[in-house]
Amino acid sequence: MSTSPDSLAHHPAGQTRKGLSTLSLQWLGVAPFLLFALLFLILPTATLMIGAFQDADGHFTLGNIAKLFDDSILSAYWISFEVSAASALGGSLIGLLLALAAIQGGLPAWIRPTLMTFSGVASNFAGIPLSFAFLSTLGRMGLVTVLLRNYADFDLYGTGFSILSFLGLTLTYLYFQIPLMVLIVTPAIDGLRTEWREACESLGGSSAAYWWHIALPILWPSILGSTLLLFANAFGAVATAYALTGSSLNIVPILLYAQIRGDVLHDQNLGYALALGMIVVTGLSNAGYIWLRSRAERGRE
């Protein structure tokens, strides 16, 4: 044997090193992106998460998390939850009906692209201009309020309604929630094949049987997942609520906004915990959305 143990050991090692270097060169291609994500997305979020578990001196504590369950903060989460849930449920139901009407309702062909384009616009028309629009519509001097008072002799504000209230905020959120639902549920509705309906008919199933036994079960994961996405979308929204209600409505994003501007809680680390709580809520509902969407895709052939 002329081959020394040394050269035997050496050869594969050299190959590994070469393999590693091409691999690291390949990683260089995505390095700028990863660095950016680290600096402006991951580290800032991580530092808040760590801060949520520290006291003012930097020691570990669960006290901040515990303080989230104080009545005033808990009620902020609860109102946020209610507004988000109401606008998500309403948005997904109405959005689903609109999409179904446009796609399967046997309406003229131009309805569908018009609805889609408009949904693209309206789902992005959130924030401050949207709050202006609803103040002009349902505010004390808004067009609908005035028209109802002058022509229908109906005093909207006399019923206790206010655009600055829970109901007003939900109505306003629906303006971007419904179109968002239309956009994300449309592919699922397009996935309903006409053959399924025909197969159902030829087997003796009525239209109701088709919806109950076939169409709704197939759409169900998409509907539920979309609702969760809408929920997260509303839960994190700041601008619309802030411009509409100022700080009169005690919801989490506004509380957090006030905290960042002026430390209204007089406790920096409690602020971090507040942010962590938001991430947990939106994170969970997004995870649910992704899981349900993958389920819906798997079921399709």
Binding site: L41, P44, T45, L48, G51, A232, G236, P253, A275, M278
Partner: peptide, 21 residues
Amino acid sequence: FITLLPLVIPAIVIVFGYLKL
């Protein structure tokens, strides 16, 4: 996953992180 994170983490949380970091 990274590109979807901004839809998961609310903008207000991200900017809060900037101010701290």
